[in-house]
């Protein structure tokens, strides 16, 4: 009690003392904010003015705490024996110093397969899908008719707005083995039909292709914005020097958007073990289970359908942690090579 009062006294007296000593800017500022110089009163004035801002923030912060931070306490389940009657804090620790479920996960063939598939699909997405929007942006940038360019862009953005269920529906109709448009066409020109969605290798190719189809237009937006920010004088100067289309692309456009490319590359590298759920889940079928089974689907199958909460949480935690580590590594690498990084 006593020390608290002393603190209060000190807090309110110190600025007053300061004010009497120096009659410079500090005094003027205090006066402008509030006519009384005391720190407690200053805080009061500050709160009186800004309490509505804190009130506005209250709801979003509550949201983040309830739906993002409170779930984190359930992460303990990865190290504990799940029990439906006990609270998370009361559940007994799992065997092997609580690592039982991690050991179980890594000796589970399904899980190892899911990790392999996740890395494979993400890696293919990265090599095929990452350059695609850059190439398309360069292409659109070369398009001489503004109106035509606009139409192309509108159409190219369209797939981004379709859900994976719709895309899977479209793909199944288009690529159906005997009734689909593509196979009918192949049949007509005398080629063999292709089991696009029913054979593992072709499924992977179709999966990657549909990923590019869905995202390539949308991802050009950011590159086009970066290209628009390049100084046009550079192009003029290059033209004076006799540079052709490709030389301008190589020496001006690409270096001009390098920062954007690197930033997006870091984010993609950080996601190499991350897994979407909708895309593989909507596209998979029982004939391609051995390649379509990714980590998010494993978690869904074992956790929500199979009710093995501890195992599924352990897998999810492993994935989240690896993702964060990868992001840090990618960011550090980018900074080492003299780029700005993500943070």
């Amino acid at each position: 009690m006593v020390s608290g009062q002393a603190k209060k006294y000190k807090a309110s007296s110190a600025p007053a003392f300061y004010n009497t000593k120096s009659k410079g800017d500090a005094t003027v500022k205090t006066v402008a904010l509030d006519s009384s110089p005391g720190r407690g009163k200053k805080l009061f004035a500050y709160l009186k003015r800004y309490w509505t801002i804190y009130l506005l923030l209250l709801l979003p912060l509550t949201y983040f705490i309830i739906f993002k931070y409170i779930p984190m306490q359930y992460i303990q389940i990865a190290f504990k024996k799940y029990s439906i009657v006990k609270s998370v804090w009361e559940m007994p620790w799992a065997d092997n110093n609580g690592l039982e479920y991690f050991i179980k996960a890594f000796s589970n063939k399904d899980f190892i397969n899911a990790v392999k598939n996740t890395i494979m699909l993400n890696f293919l997405d990265l090599i095929c899908g990452f350059p695609a929007p850059i190439i398309l942006a360069l292409l659109l940038n070369e398009l001489p008719f503004p109106r035509y360019k606009r139409v192309t862009q509108t159409v190219a953005y369209m797939p981004h707005f379709l859900s994976w269920v719709i895309i899977a529906g479209l793909a199944r109709q288009l690529f159906a083995p005997s009734t689909g448009l593509v196979n009918n066409f192949l049949d007509k020109i005398g080629m063999q039909t292709i089991p696009f969605l029913n054979e593992p290798t072709w499924w992977v190719i179709t999966y990657v292709f549909l990923g590019i189809w869905q995202s390539v237009g949308w991802n050009t937006i950011i590159y086009l914005a970066a290209i628009a920010g390049i100084n046009p004088e550079l192009y003029e100067a290059a033209e004076m020097d006799g540079a052709g289309r490709f030389r301008k692309m190589w020496h001006i456009t690409l270096p001009g958007i390098r920062t954007t490319i690197v930033t997006l590359l870091i984010l993609s590298l950080g996601r190499i073990l991350g897994s979407e759920f909708d895309r593989p889940y909507a596209l998979m079928n029982h004939m391609v289970n051995n390649v379509s089974n990714v980590i998010s689907i494993f978690v869904f199958k074992y956790g929500i359908q199979g009710l093995q909460f501890s195992l599924a949480t352990a897998v999810g935690l492993f994935q989240s942690v690896v993702c964060v580590i990868f992001l840090f590594i990618a960011n550090a690498l980018a900074k080492r090579f003299g780029e700005r990084g993500v943070w």
């Binding site: 779930p71 984190m72 956790g303 599924a312 999810g316």
Partner: peptide, 14 residues
Amino acid sequence: TMYFNAGTIPMYLL
């Protein structure tokens, strides 16, 4: 929360 999230099962249990 953008870089680290609890995961599907913790969300389900919540």
